[in-house]
Every structure is written in structure tokens, then in C-alpha cells.
């Protein structure tokens, strides 16, 4: 089973990388971009026996830092 874990900074947490990307986009002449937030995509290939609870546990224990990040688990149809 393919799983995508989308990790993003919580609202309100400063994102200097997103700001730099935003700045760079403006430098390239793209207008109308209000805000950029950078996150992380982690793709997992796991056995079908891996439960939703286990995936959630993986996110909380390692893949995301719950102090500053949120995560979303997406199961990809194969």
C-alpha cells in the first residue's frame, strides 16, 4: 500500500523558507502570490497489514514534530 504523509507547519509558525520562496517568485516577476508555506511530502510503501493507528503513530513519533507541524495521511490507490 502506498501512503503519502503531508507534513506542514502549523498556522502561526514562522516559515522563513516559505518566505524566501515567496520573495524569489516575486523576483521572477510572478505577482499575486499572497503567501508561501513550505512543507514536506513523505512517501511510504507499507504492507497492507499496517493499520491506520500504526500510521498515525509513525507520524506522531517521528515523521512530524507535533510542536510545530501538522500532518495529513493520504492513502494512494494502486
Amino acid at each position: 500500500m502506498k501512503v503519502r504523509v503531508h507534513v506542514s507547519l502549523k498556522p502561526g509558525v514562522l516559515d522563513p523558507q516559505g518566505r524566501a520562496i515567496h520573495h524569489s517568485l516575486e523576483g521572477l516577476g510572478f505577482s499575486g502570490v499572497n503567501e508561501v508555506r513550505a512543507g514536506r511530502l513523505i512517501e511510504l510503501d507499507v504492507a497492507d497489514s499496517v493499520t491506520d493507528e500504526a500510521l498515525d503513530d509513525m507520524c506522531r513519533k517521528l515523521l512530524a514534530n507535533m510542536v510545530i507541524e501538522n500532518y495529513r495521511i493520504e492513502k494512494v490507490a494502486t
Binding site: V13, L14, P16, Q17, R19, A20, V67, I68
Partner: peptide, 17 residues
């Protein structure tokens, strides 16, 4: 230490990049 939970908070990228 923050990642292990021994200390609160987290260390983000420097605001000045």
C-alpha cells in the same frame, strides 16, 4: 533535546535564512 521531549519547544530555520 527538544526533539526527544526533554525540553519544550522546537528550533526552526533562522528567520534571516
Amino acid at each position: 533535546l527538544t526533539e526527544s521531549g526533554l525540553l519544550p519547544g522546537a528550533l526552526l530555520r533562522n528567520s534571516v535564512i
